[in-house]
Design a protein around this nucleic acid. Structure first.
Length: 488
RNA sequence: GGUACCGUGGCCGAGUGGCUAGGCCGAGGUCUGCAAAACCUCUUACAGCAGUUCGAAUCUGCUCGGUACCUCCA
């Protein structure tokens, strides 16, 4: 274990708290995953990249982390009236496909996207349809405990009863009466007893495609139940961290906490982490607003708001330059800045190995290392961590230019810092891995010819070589120690 | 309408009661055959108004503007 002083902002308490795991050396973390009825967009990707960094950092600190992220494949209802079609079934009918065909397609799409962004897979990725029995069992328990009732083959959670004994709005701090006022009046044909009640189990109409037998007839699980059931199954009634996008807190997570409390009398997680939204021109990126970007639109630049394409690592770097609890505005200029910044960072990483060693250092490397850790320990502040790493970039470049010096110990320290943080924790990686030995040999031959031409003051030839190489994507740099190149 | 949050230099974005965030862009310089890269220097901002304070961009109040949630959404 690396001694740490990790602090996490906890939505539950609205404060930044010292992180202390339930079981020494172990961390249980549950993150609400995607609903696989359409393509995941970049807003979704941001959230999962944020938790990827959290997962990686906790692992780096030496914790044995069990990271559970679900796949919602059972479909959610479309309206709060608990009627209307299941989203997945709807799309299936539309496209004449089996619901599980849709699920399969978009699950693969999601995994591909996360892989492109270099996100590590979670330890367990359970599906809602794979845990129907657990959800039924949980519903039974909640009924037995007196917090749910049956109506016409559906089961509803009794929020008003629950809220008499528990703080239903503990996560958002809202007033119950305000919530009540924000909800419509119950209609005469409503099965619910209370306005805020939500479904645990819903009776399926005959045309409904995704349905399962239960003690209350054929139906399907409610919106929020799967996460309660699966988190407790794999992480226990109480675990360390529960995460998700901020938009899930008021409804989904609020109900999740209620379900777990009603079932096992425990708030499932000690630390609730919520990531903020990706915005476009200041507005939340979302499917319903139609302003979302799909990964391939971003990579190809085939989008009306983009001038060009941006690589997955550029986007990852871009995301890391903002704190996870702040909104982040998506746009051309910002992405271009990220692209250049990322290149500068990676170029310094490549230089690091060959940097000369001296007897002493002109920079305080141990302090730099401490600063980077301090930033990450302060609620995973990646922008600050990056700003310190850029100080490291400056040092590497200066030492390479022989304007500053680095001792062997400090060089080792700095190398480890960059390897640990840039690659292992921030999860960035080199994208142009075409730099094989053969290309290197070929390039050196060409550059020798050019150096020869330069020596003969034949600048026409030397410039021609440089320009032609640049067209192909090789950038030439003349330095004191000879000529080097980078592949763009 | 209710409830929160936010408003930082050309752009993105940290932070915070006094001490330079950082990235990108721009200007000048060093280096160089010329470039490029790199390094150095410069440009020094915190919506507006009033208040608290020795001192506020950071605290308080008001005003203006924006966003989110209240309905599926990461």
């Amino acid at each position: 274990m690396i001694p740490n002083n990790l602090k996490i902002y906890n939505t539950l308490t609205r404060t930044t708290e010292k992180f202390e795991p339930l079981h020494t050396g172990h961390v249980g973390m549950y993150v609400c995953g995607p609903t696989v009825y359409s393509n995941a967009h970049l807003g979704n990707a941001r959230t999962f990249m944020s938790f990827d960094v959290i997962f990686r950092y906790l692992t780096h600190l030496g914790y044995k982390v069990r990271y559970v992220r679900n796949i919602t494949d059972a479909g959610h209802l479309e309206s709060d009236a608990d009627e209307g079609e299941d989203k997945i079934s709807k799309k299936a009918k539309l496209e004449q496909l089996e619901p599980m065909e849709i699920v399969q397609r978009y699950t693969i799409d999601f995994h591909n996207m996360m892989q492109l962004f270099n996100a590590l897979p979670p330890s367990i990725e359970p599906t809602a349809t794979g845990h129907i029995i657990e959800q039924i069992e949980m519903t039974k328990k909640i009924i037995d405990n007196g917090y749910a009732y049956e109506a016409e083959g559906s089961i509803y959670f009794d929020v008003e009863k629950f809220s008499k004994e528990h703080n239903y709005t503990i996560l958002t701090g809202r007033k119950l009466e305000d919530l009540m006022n924000g909800t419509r009046e119950l209609g005469g044909q409503d099965e619910k007893r209370g306005r805020l009640d939500f479904a645990l189990w819903i009776k399926a109409k005959p045309e409904h495609l995704m349905k399962w037998p239960s003690p209350w007839g054929v139906g399907f699980p409610g919106w929020h139940l799967e996460c309660s059931a699966m988190s407790s199954k794999y992480l226990g009634d109480q675990f360390d961290i529960h995460g998700g996008g901020m938009d899930l807190a008021p409804t989904h997570h609020t109900n999740e906490i209620a379900q777990n409390l009603a079932c096992s009398h425990k708030n499932p997680a000690r630390y609730w982490i919520h990531t903020n939204m990706l915005t476009v021109n200041g507005q939340k990126m979302s499917k319903s607003l139609g302003n979302s970007f799909l990964p391939h639109e971003l990579f190809t630049g085939n989008h009306k708001l983009l001038e060009k394409g941006y690589s997955p690592m550029t986007v990852r770097f871009f995301v890391l330059q903002a704190h996870y609890r702040s909104t982040l505005d998506f746009g051309n200029e910002a992405l271009q800045a990220a692209e250049k910044g990322f290149t500068r960072l990676m170029n310094a990483v490549k230089l690091m190995d060959g940097v000369p060693v001296s007897n002493s250092s002109t920079s305080d490397i141990p302090t730099l290392v401490a600063n980077v850790y301090a930033a990450m320990n302060d609620d995973f502040n990646t922008p600050i961590a990056l700003s310190h790493l850029f100080e490291g970039v400056r040092i590497i470049n200066s030492v390479n230019d022989k304007k500053e010096t680095l001792s062997q110990d400090d060089k080792t320290l700095l190398t480890k810092l960059f390897n640990d943080f840039v690659f292992d924790i921030l999860g960035l990686k080199e994208e142009n891995e075409v730099n094989t030995d053969k290309i290197d040999g070929l390039m050196n031959m060409i550059l020798d010819v050019r150096t020869d031409a330069k020596a003969k003051k034949d600048f026409t030839t030397s410039d021609l070589i440089r320009d032609k190489l640049k067209e192909i994507g090789f950038e030439i740099k003349d330095g004191k120690e000879g000529t080097s190149y980078t592949i763009n």
